[in-house]
Amino acid sequence: MTHAAPVRVGPEAVPNRQRHWFAAFLRTRREASAGILLLVTLVVLSMTVHLWADYTPSEVAGAPFSPPSAQHLLGTDDLGRDYLVRLMTAGQTSLGIAFFAAALALLVGSAIGIAAGLRGGWLDSWLMAGIDLVLSFPSLLLALSAVTVFNPTKTILVLVLALIAVPQFARVVRAKCLELREREFVLSARVSGVPDPVIAVKHLLPNVLPLMTVQFANTAAIAILIESSLSYLGLGVQPPDPSWGNMIYAAQSYMIECPWLPLGPAGALLLASFAWGLIGEGFSGGSRSLI
């Protein structure tokens, strides 16, 4: 990725790229740009719901089961609460849990991956054996075991989703670090006596960063799916709090008469995981370096 990139030395190359880096990003990373745009829209809409909405998520705003109208863009639910407001409030939960779980997995997984990849030897063998063990279980089953023991609060959900994602993260990062460890710039740092933590931060981290971005986006996409699955089964976010998963569950009883009730959260879920998927795909495709 980096070793084959030709160095551009033309006088116009640098200022040109500096001036138009944003335009260049949009042009070369179309999928990622679309994903980011979609995600930012969802996040901004759900985070500012209390500013633009006329109703609160738990307030009875109209007749129960009103179909979509100008007053209630997505209709109302079985208790007459505004569905769009609830959908966006649920977005705060669903998007937030997925984001924090992916962030935690990024921190822990990358640390394990870099440590294992840089040190090698027994540390590597033991860490990887543990990681293979976690990967040998279906992730939904691990999550179910965890919520059997702990009440599924939001914090527990973040921890569980992160635990599921850590092994994959560590594996990807380790593989890259094993490759980087043999490269001249790391070898020369080693020979000149640079301590391992410094090598990890100064030499490995910048080179693993693009990979971590991709893995972060993929993890967030999967975390959204697993969280909604758990909430749908009644084992995730608990009912007074809306989440896209438990909204679909609640809507199932009325879906023939009121199809907007299941379709709203299902569409939101699809858009959110689609957005993260696009970002992941956009950053992984092609060998062009970032920006």
């Binding site: 679909i248 299902a266 879920l269 995981s273």
Partner: peptide
């Protein structure tokens, strides 16, 4: 396939029933 991978199976199941 992109939609098939992005949509959770239970949401697709509910949509099918609908």
């Amino acid at each position: 396939t992109f939609v098939g991978l992005a949509i959770p199976v239970f949401a697709f199941g509910v949509a099918l029933v609908l």
